Amino acid sequence: MLNNIRYEYYESVDSTNDRIKSRAHENENQGLVISAGQQTAGKGRIGRKWESPSHDSISTSILLKPEEITLEAIPTITVVAAMAVRDALYRIYGLNGLIKWPNDIVLDGKKICGILTEMEMKDGKVWFVIVGIGVNVHNKSFPEEIAFKATSVDLELAKAGGTHGHRQELTKEIWNSFAKYYNIFIETQDMSGLKEEYEKYLANRGNRVRIEDRENSYEATALGINERGELIVEVEGEERIIRTGEVSVRGIYGYI
């Protein structure tokens, strides 16, 4: 169970995931959170770079040491983390985001969050897991190539005449929410206790989507998720299972 979260903050690091990894190699206990005002080498899914402008966004990672967890259950932790970010944004700011499978949080059709889960093995077992989360908070603009699909807490609050976000407050709420969902997940190592809530906020559900991997691209209808957190889609009347990893899911006419 995750119940002893400890926080460390640094003005600048190469990557909060890499900093956590170093501490894990020093036998740090589960529950350490490292956050930074800026990342110089942040990472995203499928080898992408995650931009972290100085003090505009949240860059934060946690160390997990789940006992006797199966390899098949590890990708599901990313799905659990997405639920935590969505929950925290709603609890603090009333921002009612959706989840674009598997782990992007979208507000008004634009992405506000990125999540990257990594792990290491030792003696044939999972040694530790790292969950890294990046949230756009104070960003007022984005590079041209992502401006059409990116947003921030401050930009969304401004639409409703609100004030601005607070990175420290949101960081702690995210990890508090994560502990709540993670402890439900770890009991069964699947989404059986969380599936209903996750699907309630699944942006892709019922929509036509484009599935893209390194070899193929095809259209399908997103139906929901299974207990492993994998996406269930329908292709020409037949159901298929889409696994997290080297796969991208896009809307036919836009980001979602």
Rank of each mutant, 00 (worst) to 15 (best):
Y93P: 00
G94C: 01
I74R: 02
G114P: 10
S57W: 00
G134K: 07
R86G: 05
I69Y: 06
T76D: 04
W101L: 05
T78N: 14
V80K: 14
V131D: 10
A73G: 11
L89S: 07
D56T: 10
G94Q: 06
E67A: 13
T70S: 15
D104I: 00
G97K: 04
G109S: 06
I58W: 11
L71M: 11
T70A: 08
D87M: 09
K122Y: 10
M121Y: 12
A84M: 06
I115H: 01
K110L: 00
H55E: 15
S57Y: 07
V129K: 14
L63G: 03
L63Y: 04
I105H: 01
S59M: 14
G132S: 05
C113E: 09
K111H: 06
Y90G: 04
T117D: 10
G94F: 02
F128I: 02
P75A: 08
A88C: 05
P75M: 11
G109V: 02
I69H: 07
N103F: 06
G97F: 03
I130V: 14
L71P: 04
E118A: 04
I58E: 04
I74T: 01
V135G: 14
S57Q: 09
W101K: 03
N103I: 08
I74H: 02
K100I: 08
I99E: 11
A88L: 04
T60N: 06
K111G: 13
A82G: 15
A73T: 04
T78E: 07
L116G: 14
V85W: 01
D123S: 11
L63S: 06
V126A: 08
G114H: 03
I62K: 08
D104H: 00
K111M: 10
L98W: 07
I77Q: 15
K65M: 13
I112D: 00
L95N: 05
I58V: 07
E68H: 09
W101Y: 10
